[in-house]
Nucleic acid binder design. Structure first.
Lengths: 205, 205
DNA sequence: TGTACATCAGTGAACGCGCGTTCACTGATGTAC
DNA sequence: TGTACATCAGTGAACGCGCGTTCACTGATGTAC
């Protein structure tokens, strides 16, 4: 991402990209504004033409992440729509797909400590994304007899927790945790067993 | 943790405690050796009498964590022993209990980037702890007919992932993620549903 | 079409800061006789 | 019991470093006439 002359042309986006790359393999606190500037071939001071500071840059990365994430989730949900079960499973897969295709965004969103209340934009994007998960769970819950139906937020939380756990422990290069199985399989089977436990899949395989 | 005279008396442990407190609410990379020293009422240079450096201090915190963790897991396992199911469930609960009672250790172990290969001691302690989870899973797997029995490491991984996810997303003050349920309940019900899915609990509640 | 000028997007030097680490040192403690 | 001395566990000053941020500046671009 070398600039040609005095003006960069698209510095703002270049900085976000650099931020994502750095955050991805150094963690959110290992990331430095100066290094992002260096990568873009620009003085640290130039960053302040486009962002209020370090935090603001990370927040922008997180925002873009939530937007992509929400789009993916909505798309997955729609694709499985006629069947609540298919829709639900699709969002689960979309979660993992997002985490592995956009690791920098993932970290910016869930590990950087950026509050989703930071700006209205950020809050809106995050709500939209997480809303899809809850909607899928709510619809699926309709298929369980009311008297033994767990609150939809609860099993949306279960699925989220398992997905996040798989990502953190087995998808990223966690310390010494060599994954015995591909993370996709792990999540797929885990969710399968869970749904069977809810009586939503035939008890036999 | 004020020292009385020129000699502190128990600086090594005081530093580990400070490290744990700091790591707990600033994250592993937000932690600084100088600050830990300051908390112990001591010059940064004094740290080098007891540790090789910053990394070494964190590694010690992680080591102590793994020892406590392994003890807890073994104890929980033994308490439920006659029944593989009870033993398995107990280790799940022990995991969450550990994370909430020893958050600093938890972070040092699972989020600090310290490799468990760092020293033989560390590796041994970690292996012991994680071994209990696998042992519990293996025994439980015996109760499933062989032809539809998933590999024990797989469902030990599932449970670990869900536990870790619950801890990260709902037990710690994650950004804007207000937990709709107490994490203990979330994990308890989640594991319950999962085990029902494996046919290890009666299908009805 | 050319020129004057406003605006924009960078520079580069400087700042104060806290960090991890090193070093020669010194005060306190423990031990041998 | 007293003294000499070795060992231990701290000090404090210094180092070089990279950081985030500020500031007056300047080069490039766009626009009005």
């Amino acid at each position: 991402m070398a600039k040609q002359g005095y003006h960069h042309g698209n510095l703002r986006e270049a900085l976000v990209l650099g931020c994502l790359r750095l955050i991805e393999d150094k963690g959110p606190t290992g990331f430095s504004l100066s290094e992002a500037a260096r990568e873009a071939g620009v003085t640290p001071a130039a960053v302040y033409r486009h962002f209020e500071g370090r935090e603001d840059l990370i927040a922008e990365a997180a925002l873009q992440g939530y937007e992509i994430f929400a789009d993916l989730m909505e798309h997955a949900y729609d694709a499985g729509k006629p069947s609540p079960l298919a829709a639900f499973e699709a969002t689960g897969r979309a979660y993992l797909a997002f985490a592995s295709r956009f690791p920098g965004h993932y970290v910016a969103m869930f590990e950087s400590g950026i509050s989703i209340q930071r700006t209205p934009d950020l809050h809106r994007a995050a709500t939209r994304a997480l809303g899809v998960m809850e909607k899928a769970a709510t619809e699926l819950a309709q298929q369980i007899p009311p008297e033994k139906r767990p609150p939809p937020q609860m099993f949306s939380a279960h699925i989220w927790a398992m997905s996040h756990g798989v990502v953190e422990l087995f998808a990223r290069g966690s310390p010494g945790t060599k994954s015995p199985f591909p993370p996709e399989d792990l999540l797929e089977t885990g969710i399968g067993i869970y749904l069977r436990g809810l009586g939503l899949i035939a008890p036999d395989r």
